[in-house]
Amino acid sequence: MTDSQIIKVNNLIKDYTMGKQFFRALNDINLSVKTGEFCGLVGPSGSGKTTLLNIIGALDNPTGGDAIIMDKSVNALKSKEAAKLRNESIGFIFQTYNLLPIYTVYENVEFPLLLLKKNKRDREEAVMRALEWVGISDKANSKPNQLSGGESQRVAVARAMVKLPKIVLADEPTANLDAANSHNILKTLQKLNSELKTTFIFATHDEKVIGYLRRKIILGDGKVIDDININ
């Protein structure tokens, strides 16, 4: 893996057993992602994009082949090491925001830093900076149930970005948003990508998202059908 390659996937296979049968979700996937890419796994439901995102995010192990994430083989990671990798280097953005409802916006964004055992001053600075990035610092003391969908997803973005991860994995981040909010979020993510050089990988079939991607890895039936770079 070269210095600029942050993710390298080699001959990746993922099978799921269903009773006595098995289902091959990923079939001999080979790809690499460079630092700072703004790319997406694109394909219809069942094409394997979320499964691939899971493995890149060290949430799942491959059946065959390997995924090397920041020089670490996902196959070799134990559960605690995988958690550490996610904690230190990977940010997640979910389709349904998944904010912790009893905590304020500030506390939700602060949570990943608590896991990293950052001191209070560092946490305060990082949280306020992240909230400013997504333009929601005035909502710091609000609870998630007081936010709109777009605002909630902005908080989720701030939570993913606050620890300055090397990689952000976003699974259908605009699926629950209207067009205006979707574009706002995507522009914010694009801006963060260009300013912070964070690598973004989306799993999506949403045309709005696809329009922003600079690289489209097209998946179909668990295989890479096409890999399109847009410069």
């Binding site: 949430l59 559960s79 958690a83 904690n87 230190e88 979910f94 998944n98 949570f111 990943p112 896991l115």
Partner: peptide, 16 residues
């Protein structure tokens, strides 16, 4: 359930 899922995804280990 949801909260614990988020905490797992954000990098908290099951032990923690």
């Amino acid at each position: 359930y949801g909260e614990i899922g988020v905490r797992l995804a954000l990098g908290q280990s099951k032990d923690q």
